[in-house]
């Protein structure tokens, strides 16, 4: 019985906080407020994941990585935007996308010294070889991959500044490509994205 003395007085201390501290009602209100904020944070987290790709290259080989990664990420449920700038605009250009070429110059993986690679027609030859390999290997063409990517919901954006620089019109681009966007749009996309790639 003598031990009981300490117990009740501890309980009392918990149930009636110091006069200077927050009351139970204040604490309850604070908990409710935090729970509401937690709910907001959790519900924001449940949105789709995002990927933002900045594509800058327009050679036959370098057209592939952004298209493959973008369409695959879309298959994984990502919201994907591909911001195309400089020569990557050629990939979105109806006429030019069918004529993408491989550069033989400065490509150490081709069995050809640079001194020969600069000769007229060598780029065309290297491009033909690559195109034949793509066909033989049943790899999708750039046009097919672009169509697939658009079908699965990838948003392609054409950088307006480089459109003007290269003299391309919106009508030159595939249907579904968003024109009239700039670096600010790309930055905002990247800031929101879970994955950001510069290709």
């Amino acid at each position: 019985m003598s031990a009981d003395g300490a117990g009740p007085s501890d309980d009392d201390a918990r149930e009636t906080p110091d006069a200077g501290g927050p009351s139970r009602a204040e604490l309850a209100a604070r908990v409710a407020e935090l729970e509401a904020r937690l709910e907001t944070v959790e519900s924001t987290d449940e949105g789709p994941r995002k990927m933002s790709i900045i594509a800058t290259k327009g050679t036959l080989d370098m057209a592939y990585p952004p298209l493959i990664l973008a369409s695959t990420a879309a298959a994984f449920g990502y919201d994907v935007t591909v911001f195309a700038t400089f020569w990557a605009l050629d990939v979105l250009h109806v006429e030019r996308s069918a004529k993408l070429r491989l550069s033989a110059v400065g490509n150490p993986n081709l069995p050809l010294p640079n001194a020969l690679a600069v000769l007229p027609g060598v780029d065309r030859l290297a491009t033909r070889m690559m195109e034949r390999r793509i066909a033989d290997n049943d790899t999708a063409t750039v046009e097919e991959l672009l169509g697939t990517a658009i079908d699965v919901g990838v948003e392609f954006q054409a950088c307006q500044m480089t459109m003007d620089l290269l003299g391309y019109e919106e009508d030159d681009l595939y249907e579904g490509v968003t024109a009239g966007v700039g670096a600010a749009t790309a930055i905002r996309d990247m800031a929101d994205a879970d994955i950001q790639l510069l290709v």
Binding site: T72, A75, D138, A140, T148, D151, V152
Partner: peptide, 11 residues
């Protein structure tokens, strides 16, 4: 070939 099997499976 890659990436078509995954994409067509998803579709």
């Amino acid at each position: 070939n890659c990436p078509m099997p995954v994409i067509e499976t998803k579709q």
